[in-house]
Every structure is written in structure tokens, then in C-alpha cells.
């Protein structure tokens, strides 16, 4: 994350401006290998270390939930330049003010838990 600048606010800004291939290369190559690997796991019924076949539970279908929730997350991603993973990495990297971002994210998740029944899913 750090070494490929995925944690950089600048790289996320650049990504949303479509100015560079860098972030698309990272996410795209991860997904491409992911698709191939998941297909192989399913084809050969590969088991996990716990002895169970690796299963993929389908996510329940909805448009509102993913589109609205996703859009709100996208706003936050472009503001802080960090999705949840890089947030932790930045804190480890000594950017102490990101602790405030993490605290706000916890508050956001908590708020969602309180009002979720009023939201379309």
C-alpha cells in the first residue's frame, strides 16, 4: 500500500481525474488475477485450511443499497483520499491526524447501524 502510493491522497485524486493509469493498473490487475483465481478455486473445489471447500456466498440483489451507499462512500473516498485499508496503513505510517478520520468512520458505521431500518436496501 505504501510502496505503490495507494495510500496517497494525490493518487486517488489523480485516479478520479483519469489522469494516470497507475491506480487502474493496481485495481485492474488485482481483479483480473482475482477472477482467474476464483474460477480455479471453483473449478477444482479447493479447500481452505479448515477443511471446508472455499465457498462464495452471493450478495443479495438490490440497486438502492449499493448505488446510494456506494456513492456516499465514493464521496468520502475522494475527500480523505483513503478507503478503509489505507486508513490503517496511514496511521501506522505516522500520519496521526488520520486517527480522526478513523474515529469519524466508526461514528459513521455506528450511525448507519442506528438508522439502517429507515434506509432503502
Amino acid at each position: 500500500m505504501t510502496k505503490a502510493q495507494v495510500i496517497s491522497w494525490f493518487r486517488i485524486y489523480e485516479m478520479f481525474r483519469f489522469d494516470a493509469f497507475h491506480m487502474y493498473g493496481i485495481i485492474g490487475s488485482a481483479v483480473l488475477l482475482g477472477v482467474i483465481g476464483v474460477a480455479l478455486i471453483q473449478r477444482f473445489g479447493i479447500k481452505s485450511t479448515e477443511g471446508m471447500p472455499i465457498a462464495f456466498s452471493p450478495k443479495s440483489m438490490s440497486i438502492a443499497r449499493y448505488l446510494f451507499g456506494g456513492t456516499i462512500f465514493g464521496l468520502g473516498w475522494a475527500m480523505t483520499g483513503a478507503c478503509p485499508g489505507p486508513m490503517y496503513t496511514l496511521i501506522g505510517g505516522g500520519f496521526s491526524v488520520v486517527l480522526v478520520v478513523l474515529a469519524s468512520a466508526l461514528l459513521g458505521t455506528f450511525t448507519y447501524g442506528l438508522i439502517r431500518k429507515k434506509l432503502p436496501h
Binding site: I27, A30, V31, G34, K59, R65, Y66, F68, G69, G70, T71, I72, F73, G74, L75, G76, W77, M79, T80, A82, C83, P84, G85, M87, V97, V100, V101, L102, A103, S104, A105, L106, L107, G108, T109, F110, T111, Y112, G113, R116, L119
Partner: peptide, 24 residues
Amino acid sequence: LVVGGFFIGFGTRWAGGCTSGHAI
């Protein structure tokens, strides 16, 4: 930082995942 962080926490849970859970 604060509103952006809140959007991350709220939006990811509503959408049921973030970059790692959904995009990857």
C-alpha cells in the same frame, strides 16, 4: 477529514463493503 471519514463509515456499511470487499 471528519465529514469525509463519516461518509466512509456510513457509506461502506450501507453498501455492504468498500474497495476490498466490493471492488476486489
